[in-house]
């Protein structure tokens, strides 16, 4: 278990290292002159020079890269060009919105998907199964931002139950904050839940045709107990894979959903930074999101080993 973790950790740092190179090359090397990109074509030569000086663009590429990475490792993400505050502060502030949003969405989608998927598998081929599968088919096809717009129309504009967007800040009370996150979380969670439920169902159906399920039944265990004790746990192995991949979609989803609801989150920060050509914020913001995705993949890998003893090498 330990050495499995170490190996995985090594892979994780390698991926992050490679990702940092990609981000750096795309944003700092390929554009030629980042200062020109940030200021636009009409910029004066002396303002350009000043910005280059401020960003340290006159240093060799390698030095700039090393400085950037070392800075991030120490929590220094540079100074945002548009907001003129440390990017680390911006990220911390925005993460306080995005992370709870992603977490609520993930919990919500799992909480919806697991029981539904298990039920569908249990009543495979029956009307209930057909109904659930039809619904999930539509759920998958639902673009989350359109679903979000519909939710806003129904619950905010028509029924006036919930805010249509914006975020009051956690200092205005946890409940007010949560209230602002409910609709975005649902919009994110439901399409994800549809996918997850389908994966759960098919994984469980596969597992239930295994020989050891028959063995369990031969011991006298009832169909229901067998499903829970031997089926669900083993079905979790493929489900976890998808759950890990889904986090990547979830991150993508937050970027859009935060825009629909005008939430001051990480995704919106990066999105606005790109329209304002604030490359410094984009660079570090993207890196943070990538790190988040990679970290979740790592956690999923560990969960894998916890579920499947065959992955724990040695003893």
């Amino acid at each position: 278990m330990f050495s499995y973790g170490v190996l995985r950790l090594l892979g994780l740092s390698l991926t992050l290292f490679a990702a940092s190179i990609v981000v750096f090359v795309v944003l700092e090397v390929l554009p030629g002159d980042p200062a020109q990109v940030m200021l636009g074509i009409s910029a004066q030569e002396d303002t350009l020079a000043a910005l280059r000086e401020q960003l340290g663009l006159n240093a060799p590429v390698l030095t700039r890269y090393v400085d950037w990475v070392l800075g991030m490792l120490q929590g220094d993400f540079g100074i945002s060009y548009t907001y003129n505050v440390p990017v680390s502060e911006l990220i911390a502030e925005r993460a306080a919105v995005s992370l709870p949003l992603a977490a609520i969405a993930l919990i919500l989608s799992t909480a919806i998907a697991f029981p539904i998927g298990i039920m569908a598998a249990r009543f495979r081929g029956k009307a209930l199964d057909t109904g659930i599968m039809g619904l999930t088919q539509v759920g998958i096809a639902l673009p989350n931002f359109w679903f979000a717009i519909l939710l806003v129309y129904v619950f905010a504009i028509t029924l006036r139950l919930l805010p249509s967007g914006g975020f009051p800040g956690w200092d205005q009370g946890v409940l007010n904050g949560l209230e602002a996150l409910i609709l975005p979380a649902i919009a994110l969670a439901l399409p994800q839940a549809a996918i997850l439920a389908r994966v759960m169902r098919s994984a469980l159906i596969d597992v239930m045709s295994e020989d050891y399920i028959r063995t369990a039944r031969a011991k006298g265990l009832s169909a229901r107990v067998t499903l829970w004790r031997h089926g669900v746990r083993n079905a979790l192995i493929p489900v976890l894979t998808i759950l890990g991949l889904q986090f990547s979609f979830l991150v993508a989803g937050t970027v859009i959903i935060e825009n629909v609801f005008y939430l001051p989150g990480l995704g919106r920060l990066i999105f606005q930074a790109i329209t304002q050509r604030d490359l410094i914020t984009v660079k570090s913001g993207v890196m943070v999101l990538v790190a988040l995705v990679v970290l979740i993949t790592f956690i999923v890998d560990l969960a894998y080993a916890a579920v499947d003893p065959r992955l724990r090498r040695g003893r």
Binding site: D211, Y212, A218, K219, L221, N234, D308, P309
Partner: peptide, 18 residues
């Protein structure tokens, strides 16, 4: 399992790997 029991052919797949 209590009165009638069964031994299966494939010992690898007859046991739950987890």
């Amino acid at each position: 399992g209590r009165s009638i029991s069964m031994v299966f052919q494939e010992p690898m797949t007859a046991l739950n790997p987890t």
